[in-house]
Design a binder for these strands. Structure first.
Lengths: 238, 238, 238, 238
DNA sequence: TATGAATGAGTCTTCATTCAT
DNA sequence: AATGAATGAAGACTCATTCAT
């Protein structure tokens, strides 16, 4: 998942005129940044093109200089967000053989760090909201992001089950179990403003979630000790 | 979470006039049902009051006979959905002492069955989408549903950790790990149309997820055996 | 060529409420009348939908209750105008055999009387102006009006030439010679405000044109007497 | 009626710098040519200044270097078109005494040849269309062209009637009868794409019209022979 | 109660015109 | 002289809401 809006400011530093900057090439990104903020805040339909323009520091008409329509703005937003990040991660995952946990222990923190950037997280959150009215968005994201990451993870679990490295579980479902807690965590904050006790507004404490989740998930993946006659695990409950 | 719109038609049978103005008092619910379908399909902003009216089989003006505004419709929708279900469940959870797994193994399937009803699931999905433009909705849902269920589950894990029934994990995060996979599963279907291989459109295969998830999650909750060899687990719970 | 907007006012007299008249069926025509006036006055592009609405005594939105778009208004205008008048005239013309002059001396005044109604004349004038931006309009008029009348007149002259009733002229061109003077007359007034000396603004003095034109045109049609001295003209027709 | 835009390119050959800023003073004319094409094709309102600029091969801003506004462009167009042609013709006409036919048989073909140039014809066609929104245009054309030509022709017929050279007709109307067929012919092609059978698209076959029209019109002008058997017509003039 | 015609505020989009470069 | 990015006023169209019937 996504955008690197932080890259642009640096190039601006060298610009001689900070006032009337006709930085034709920077404008689209500035507009997208403004749009992302507003869409995340009020939703696509409640955001006026003029709002986007104002926040980007340009006039209403300028938006149409770079994007043919309001719909094109949100589409460009998603397009910009789907970078090579997921592809690279998927490659690593696909190449892996054996117990997935050593790989995940390295990769999940990278993923977590990435989604810790509100701007990065904003895109999938936006897609979740606008999917019914903008199927194109969901389609793009599915093709470029979900469709790359999920099959890779599914294959990872699949070969691990076959190799006996982990418990016999449905690989597709395991992927949902791996990622789900992060989604839950993020949505709880985004939709209801519910944060872990002690977290400041906007603070996600993803590290705590990561620790808790992986400690449970990884332990839960251990192969069933049945070939081992000693009954050290007691499942005799309800 | 929750309407049972299918219940109403039966009660209508007892009405004396089945021809004229039948189900007079059912109108609001019919309108809400129509609205729910449309909001789920196209989102709140893209649904016209006239669409709702048409689908409910009434005139545009009739909607305003029962609801003062379009916003009131979506609010009533959420209001109707938050019944006593969650409260009852929360009571059970709060009363529980000891290993949470025996309780969860009973409760989770009930929860799963409930969210298997598309109409029930439609409400939280709607809230997720409309939250930024309708904070009231999220607020209601947080107060009545999330705010009841999550603290109860948190307390459940909390006492279990304290009692040594499960691994030492952050209880708030554990709740996210418990529910997250279901959210992930549902959103994958809803937003991207991604279903487990072999599932028909609309089919959720929640049972498979439930099996996989709980087998991992429950095993993952086992107290770490190494630092604490003595099985001090107390099974005396109610 | 053709609306009869004058028919409606009479039916209104019987209406009980002159104020809030929800005469759903009269509205479209009122809107078309307003639109015709304004289009004729300022052109299609310079006329705002709100102008039309105001002149028709309704709100902007009401226009969209009856017409899906501004384009649809001008199209409906032309559609309404192409009535059966031309068809009936064309039938008479087509049925005629022999010297065309006795027929024309009856028909042309009827045509002239018809185009004396400013509302009737407004439509072809509008089409002339909007043809490049609304090819559909020109197409409709060509199919229903021009394409009916001109071929009929061409055939009329054609058979007259063959029968030796008139001079050997190109029938297609003769039609242009028959109608052209009226077009010239009308455009002179419409475009440049040039009227015959002594005519009041808006007054067309079509009768004078008719007299002059037909006296010249009819005399001009006489078969050339020199090569053929015998008056073989056959006046025995319907 | 009249521009000769084709004249300019030749004069450019004498320019010393064919590479840089060639035809500097030709720019306005190039812009007008581009504008004329586009106005004729899509109408004034549907033509964007940028379209004109692009077709003229200059930037949008350049148009404003030569013309203060879009309206000024169309006005310049008409201004450029009203040359001395009409004036000279009118002088000839005004000077004439006696039967107008010998004069017309010479002049009408010249007029016809002139309007055979699409660029020349484009201007009056444009005026017809834009008259309601640009009264200034019609005014200019009326003053310079119509107001010169029509009175001259009217006087021509007037003196001919008085001298007994032609039938007693209304001179003003006779002018309409003389020019009308050409207008009809041209509009039929322009508005409805209706051409004489056998004519290629854009081909006007004005010669055929001219033959037909003048043969009828001239014969039609003959003084009524009945009351006066003696052929008093005097054709002896230059 | 119920209807649906009517309203008009709100928003996207276009484009003539300006102006820094 | 020339460019084209930028502006913002203007206008088509939508739709929540009202209200006469």
């Amino acid at each position: 998942m996504t955008a690197q809006p932080e890259d642009r400011p640096e190039t601006d530093q060298t610009e001689p005129e900070p006032k009337f900057r006709r930085r034709k090439d920077a404008r689209p990104d500035e507009i997208l940044d403004a749009a992302l903020d507003l869409f995340a805040e009020k939703g696509f339909d409640r955001t006026r093109v003029e709002d986007i323009a104002r926040r980007a520091g340009v006039s209403k008409g300028a938006v149409y200089l770079y994007f043919p329509s309001k719909d094109a703005v949100i589409e460009a937003l998603v397009h910009r967000a789907v970078g090579s990040f997921v592809g690279k991660m998927a490659d690593h995952i696909t190449a892996w053989r054996g117990d997935p946990r050593p790989l995940l222990i390295r990769l999940v923190p990278i993923f977590v760090e990435r989604v810790s950037d509100p701007r990065v997280l904003a895109v999938p959150k936006l897609i979740i909201r606008e999917a019914p009215s903008h199927p194109k968005l969901a389609e793009m994201y599915r093709e470029q992001v979900i469709g790359t990451a999920f099959p890779a993870l599914t294959a990872l679990f699949s070969q691990a089950v076959e190799g006996g490295y982990i418990r016999k579980i449905d690989p597709e479902m395991a992927v949902r179990c791996l990622i789900g807690p992060f989604l839950m965590h993020v949505m709880l904050e985004d939709v209801f403003g519910i944060r872990p006790s002690g977290a400041a507004p906007g603070e996600l404490k993803l590290a705590t979630l990561l620790d808790t989740h992986l400690s449970i998930f990884f332990a839960g993946l251990d192969p069933d000790p049945s070939p081992d006659p000693s009954p050290q695990k007691d499942m005799s409950h309800g």
